[in-house]
Design a protein around this nucleic acid. Structure first.
Length: 650
DNA sequence: TTAGGGTTAG
């Protein structure tokens, strides 16, 4: 799999102009009296030129230096890395080989780092292979290089080899090996690998080492294993701001935003010698964004300003996301406008912010503006802009952008991009076109692509394609209960109750449980959580009474409860009762009771907003004169005066 | 000579 090239192809460009330049530089340095010149030893001058960033001149001197030293090569290598110059790097490497330095273990480490920096991992591997005497630095360098380049499996193979042949690993080796576990495709096997490394770390007595244990915690977090991550965190005798931030990140990214906020609170109020930094705050903002906790998020924003924490690019993007996901698109835009420096992530954040609010064309315009501003779109830029087209029903614009990815931007569409395209076409009820896209895919359509098709089949009730998609999904993700529920939804919509029963039996026989609908609402800076048919809230009776009253009022105005959405063979009345118990309706009822008239009601839901809840929320917004925002798993819905910003397309 | 936590989408 490694492409081997001989480092003897590229010749250094030496011209008479270069010789003149060299003479002139020596003269200038001499006049400035900064460097003492020894005509038989160019090493000090080469080193000085490297330190000052004059790589080309340094290289011209190297060509006539008969005895380059190790330090000279070290600085040249560093300079090539900094200037990202592959031909120069190659030239230095060749020169080293000519002078017998290419097998020096110290310089080999530097060469591996350099090739890694230049994204030429095959050359790094070649350097490693040719070193007869490998110090632990050399082993660690190749582990680091492979991991940074995404070759996690290769890195772990080397780690295994080290253990097999008895190379004594140090604390860096374990850290790199742990990180290698994360950068790979096969999550299951590597999760097991992580546990093996965990065991080895304990056997080597590193259980109190803060760097290693924080990395270990982070690896478990990235595999979604919150229990193991918490176990590692709790067992750490010394925790610093990085360990705390990693644990907060673990909760924030694994759908445990309450735990993330609780841990942050503990960090601030109970650990006196630790101060949160901007990285900590990024994770805290993510937790607020997940809950659409605007008031709490504003408090956190004030905390950041008061503590004068560095407004780094990630922190600013996290703030934009917070406001956008809480429905405050204009604030996100304002933050973006005030940024001195913007990177591709800042632009992506703005694109997706407009996207989730349903402003598809605006998102496309921002995407174009980003390109005009000289920012190269990333793979995520396309996910963002295609997602924005999908939310707004801009199927043809999205198709055009999809084509432009490879044609104009040199990005090969990944399964995620195909999933966006399938979603885009599927939602627009171009289901057979979407299925055709899957048929013609050059890469393996993974669960995301089939999942997109199944999701669209649910919206447009297409039994044939839903069966096709779900048969694939049942093979690819046999334990994902959501796929069974979607298929059952399609059958229920089509009135195929025997099939509904069969799918539900399949779900039960496999011991799976569907993800319960959950909604959150923030009232007076406190967040309240609701589940369907919630009996825990002390105001539940009051909420039910209010919802029944509103429902009756709606019926008089022509509303028909969409009882077909209830997957149980029950009496109509009972189905209506179940519909009224949906978590988003309970949260809405709670919001109506506990907030004053001028306030916007903000609700978050962990799944797609149900059609009946959508209809009812539209009505309530008009009937009560309230502005209601519901952010579901896909997008933001703003209900005002009986109309939703999604235009009933979501 | 080397090290840990961060933003965007789905």
């Amino acid at each position: 799999m490694w492409v081997l090239h001989s480092p003897q192809i590229i010749q250094p460009p030496i011209s008479s102009l270069a010789v003149k330049q060299r003479t002139s530089i020596i003269a200038q340095q001499s006049i400035n009296n900064t460097i003492s010149i020894n005509p038989t030893n160019n090493n000090p001058l080469i080193q000085s030129l490297c330190k000052k960033g004059h790589l080309k001149q340094a290289l011209h001197l190297l060509s006539s230096e008969p005895n380059p030293t190790q330090q000279t090569y070290e600085l040249l290598i560093l300079s090539c890395s900094r200037q990202k110059s592959f031909p120069d790097a190659f030239y230095v490497h060749r020169n080293m080989a000519d002078n017998g330095f290419d097998q020096d273990p110290f310089l080999a480490t530097k060469l591996i780092d350099m090739y890694s920096e230049l994204e030429c991992i095959e050359y790094a591997r070649q350097v490693f292979d040719k070193i007869p005497r490998r110090t632990i630095y050399v082993w660690n360098a190749i582990l680091r290089a492979l991991t940074l380049s995404g070759y996690g499996v290769e890195a772990l193979r080397i780690y295994r080899r080290m253990n097999r042949i008895g190379v004594p690993c140090d604390r860096f080796t374990h850290t790199y090996a742990l990180k290698a576990c994360v950068v790979s495709e096969s999550v299951t096997s590597l999760s097991k690998k992580g546990r093996e490394i965990h065991g080895r770390i304990l056997r080597h007595g590193y259980e109190t080492h803060v760097h290693i244990m924080t990395t270990l915690l982070d690896v478990y977090a990235k595999f979604g294993n919150v229990v193991y991550a918490t176990y590692v965190f709790d067992g750490m005798p010394d925790k610093n701001v990085v360990s705390w931030s990693a644990m907060i990140a673990c909760y924030a990214k694994n759908e445990k935003p309450f735990e993330a906020l609780k841990l942050f609170h503990e960090m601030v109020h109970q650990i006196s010698d630790l101060s949160p930094n901007s990285v900590t705050m990024v994770n805290v903002l993510q937790a607020c964004a997940a809950l659409a906790a605007l008031e709490l998020g504003k408090l956190i924003h004030c905390y950041i300003l008061r503590r004068n924490l560095n407004s780094t690019l990630p922190l600013t993007s996290a703030l934009m996301t917070l406001y956008a996901r809480c429905g405050k698109l204009e604030v996100a835009q304002k933050i973006f406008d005030q940024m001195d420096k913007k990177d591709v992530v800042s632009w992506n954040t703005l694109i997706s912010s407009y996207g989730i609010h349903g402003f598809g064309m605006k998102a496309v315009r921002i995407f174009e503006k980003m390109i005009s501003a000289g920012i190269k779109p990333s793979a995520i830029s396309f996910v963002s802009v295609l997602g924005a087209c999908s939310h707004a029903g801009l199927a043809d614009v999205g198709k055009m952008l999809f084509r432009s990815m490879a044609e104009h931007h040199g990005i090969s569409p990944s399964a995620e991009h195909y999933a966006c395209l399938v979603d885009l076409l599927g939602r627009s009820n171009r289901l057979y076109e979407a299925a055709k896209v899957i048929e013609n895919m050059r890469i393996d359509p993974g669960p995301k692509v089939w999942g997109s098709l199944l999701g669209s089949c649910k919206i447009h009730c297409n039994v044939e394609l839903a069966e096709r998609a779900s048969s694939q999904l049942f093979k690819l993700e046999p334990t994902n209960a959501g796929n069974y529920v979607l298929l059952a939804d399609v059958y229920a919509e089509a009135g195929m109750w025997d099939e509904v029963k069969r799918v539900k039996q399949l779900l039960e026989s496999r011991g799976l449980q569907k993800v319960s609908g959950r909604s959150w609402i923030e009232v007076k800076r406190k967040i309240y959580s609701f589940m369907s048919v919630d009996e825990l809230n002390p105001q539940i009776e009051l909420i039910h009474a209010l919802l029944v009253e509103l429902s009756e009022e709606m019926k008089q105005q022509g509303y028909i409860p969409q009882t077909k959405l209830v997957l149980y063979d029950l009496e109509e009345k009972e189905k209506e009762r179940i519909l009224l118990g949906h978590s988003e309706k309970l949260a809405l009822g709670f919001g109506l009771i506990n907030s004053s008239k001028g306030q916007t009601i903000r609700i978050t839901k962990n799944l797609r907003l149900c059609e009946d809840c959508h209809t009812m929320t539209k009505f309530i917004s008009r009937f009560t004169g309230r502005e209601i925002m519901v952010r579901d798993v896909n997008r933001v819905h703003r209900f005002r005066d009986g109309i939703c910003s999604c235009g009933d397309y979501w």
